[in-house]
C-alpha cells in the first residue's frame, strides 16, 4: 500500500480508494480476494458482492481478462466518522468466462459514477460502503 494511502488526511482517503481499486482489479484478474477482503468491511454489501463474484468465478474455473476499473477525480465529503468519496469509474471492455465449462465471451465496459464510504480503524482505512451513483 502506498504510504500516502495510510495518511489520516483527505489525500490519504483518496489515495486509499485509488489503492483499493488497484487491489480490486488485481482480485478480478487473479481470483485472489484476500487483500480485497481485508480492505473491505464485512458489512459492505457492494464490496462483498464483488468479492463473491471474483472468488466464485475463479473457484469454478472461470476468469476475467481486462475490464479493469479506472477512477477519475474524487470528490470527498468528510464527516466525523466516515469519509464519502465519489468518482467516475471507467470500466474497460474485457472478456471472460464464468466457469471451466462455459465459453469465453467478450464483455462491454461502461462509464458510471460510484461512491465509497471509508473509515479508519487502528489498521488504517477500510471501505465501509460501495455503491452506485452519488451518496444518498
Amino acid at each position: 500500500m502506498p504510504d500516502q494511502a495510510r495518511e489520516d488526511t483527505p489525500e490519504g482517503a483518496a489515495a486509499f480508494v485509488k489503492h483499493y481499486v488497484d487491489v480490486f482489479n488485481y482480485a478480478a484478474s487473479t481470483g485472489d480476494v484476500e487483500e480485497l477482503s481485508r480492505l473491505s468491511s464485512p458489512a459492505c454489501e457492494g464490496c462483498q458482492s464483488y468479492i463473491d463474484l471474483y472468488r466464485d468465478t475463479y473457484q469454478a474455473g472461470g476468469y476475467f481478462k481486462g475490464g479493469d476499473w479506472t477512477i477519475g477525480d474524487l470528490s470527498l465529503e468528510i464527516e466525523s466518522e466516515q469519509t464519502f468519496l465519489t468518482t467516475r469509474v471507467d470500466v474497460a471492455d474485457g472478456r471472460g468466462r464464468s466457469s471451466a465449462d462455459s465459453t469465453e465471451t467478450a464483455e462491454s465496459g461502461e462509464t458510471t459514477r460510484v461512491s465509497f464510504a471509508a473509515a479508519r480503524d487502528s489498521e488504517g482505512w477500510r471501505v465501509q460502503q460501495l455503491g452506485l451513483g452519488d451518496v444518498k
Binding site: 458489512a43 461512491s115 465501509q128 455503491g131
Partner: peptide, 24 residues
Amino acid sequence: NPSKRKPSLRLEGVRVVRQAPSID
C-alpha cells in the same frame, strides 16, 4: 455481454448512504 464487473449491474440498487447501517 455486459461485463459482470459493471457497477450498473453489480451494484444495482446498492447506494452509499450517509447514515451507514453499521460501521464495522
